[in-house]
Simulated scan of single mutants.
Amino acid sequence: MRSFHGIGLFILLLFSASISGQIRHPKASPFSSVTQDIGFTTITVDYSRPAVRGRQLFGKLVPYGRIWRVGANESTKFTTNTTVNVLGNTLEPGTYALYAFPEEGSWEIAFHRNTSHWGDGRTDYNPSEDAFRIRATPKKEADWQENFLISFDSIHHNGALMEWKWGYTVVSIPLEVDTQKAMLDTISSSLKENPTAQTYYEAARYLQEESLEPEKALEYVQKAIDLGGDTYYFYRVRSLLQASLGDYKGAISSAERSLQLADAEGKDEFVRMNRENVKKWKKWVKENKE
């Protein structure tokens, strides 16, 4: 009797599973998400990654002249936490759907406010809901990309390239952010509130990296040294600033001090970088004497 009841329960469970749910299976175009910091801006793109699988891509699998969801499954979502400039167009903080209208020689790309459409939203898509559209020229690369890929490259404090790669085709979209204004405002306010040696160093380092106000940056790094003492990275930035102002003898002296301090702490990378700069600047001084 117990055996009968056990078999009956097993059959009942199988029957219930068959009518109440479906078998979970992996997606042919798996979900992916890429997040990139650009200065103080954080951008996230959520999308799915279809594979080529031997098919002809653009003009066939992705027809020319028709809307494409920039991936597969749900529409691709682009989220930014600050204002982004895209080829002269202002994109306010928020989430947008990305759509493309590929053609053989040029693509039209839409940043779309309505993120509720499934897939490409072909029947519901309304151009009036675009934040804006831009044009981009697709290029061919030597390296093959089997699964559609969205990535970021050429990243600096104030911008980056968002790149779409599939097969041999690459589309690059330049993004710009105003990190400089935010950073200069931060420096100004920080230097008014009991600045430390590190505060002055960080201010000097940013100005040096961005080639801004080298004389002021040199004052800041000197204050960092006065307050914080001899530190290899203080003297490293000082040497770079002096070189940018044409004071190569001063730059050599600062680099040699940075090298000495870095060597004492086992900072091999800074030893190497300083040694290379000393060699380069000594050569410049010698050539300009003759």
Rank of each mutant, 00 (worst) to 15 (best):
A110I: 10
F111D: 00
F111A: 00
F111E: 00
H112P: 02
H112K: 02
H112M: 04
R113Q: 14
R113V: 02
R113K: 15
N114M: 02
T115N: 04
S116Y: 03
H117Q: 07
W118K: 03
W118M: 05
G121T: 03
G121C: 04
G121F: 07
R122L: 14
R122M: 14
T123P: 00
D124S: 11
D124E: 13
Y125S: 01
Y125Q: 02
N126A: 13
N126E: 11
P127Y: 05
P127T: 00
P127K: 05
P127E: 05
E129I: 01
D130K: 08
D130G: 11
A131V: 11
A131I: 08
F132G: 03
R133D: 02
I134H: 06
R135Q: 15
R135S: 15
R135V: 09
A136G: 04
T137E: 12
T137F: 07
T137H: 07
P138W: 02
K139I: 11
K139Y: 01
K140E: 15
A142L: 14
A142N: 10
D143W: 09
W144N: 10
W144H: 13
Q145C: 08
Q145A: 06
E146G: 07
N147F: 10
F148W: 03
L149M: 09
L149K: 10
I150H: 00
S151D: 13
F152M: 09
F152V: 05
D153T: 13
D153W: 01
S154P: 06
S154V: 11
S154R: 15
S154T: 12
H156L: 09
H156G: 15
H157L: 15
N158L: 12
N158G: 11
G159T: 02
A160E: 13
L161Q: 14
L161I: 10
E163D: 10
W164C: 12
W164G: 07
W164M: 15
K165F: 04
K165S: 13
K165D: 07
W166D: 02
W166R: 05
G167H: 04
Y168I: 04
Y168T: 09
P174N: 05
P174G: 01
L175Q: 05
L175E: 06
E176S: 14
E176P: 06
V177F: 08
D178A: 07
D178T: 09
T179W: 14
T179Y: 15
Q180F: 08
Q180G: 05
Q180S: 12
K181P: 07
K181T: 15
M183T: 13
L184F: 06
L184G: 03
D185L: 10
D185P: 00
D185H: 08
T186G: 05
T186P: 00
I187G: 03
I187A: 04
S189K: 12
K192T: 11
K192F: 02
E193F: 07
P195W: 09
P195N: 04
T196K: 08
A197I: 01
A197D: 12
Q198P: 00
Q198I: 12
Y201V: 00
Y201P: 01
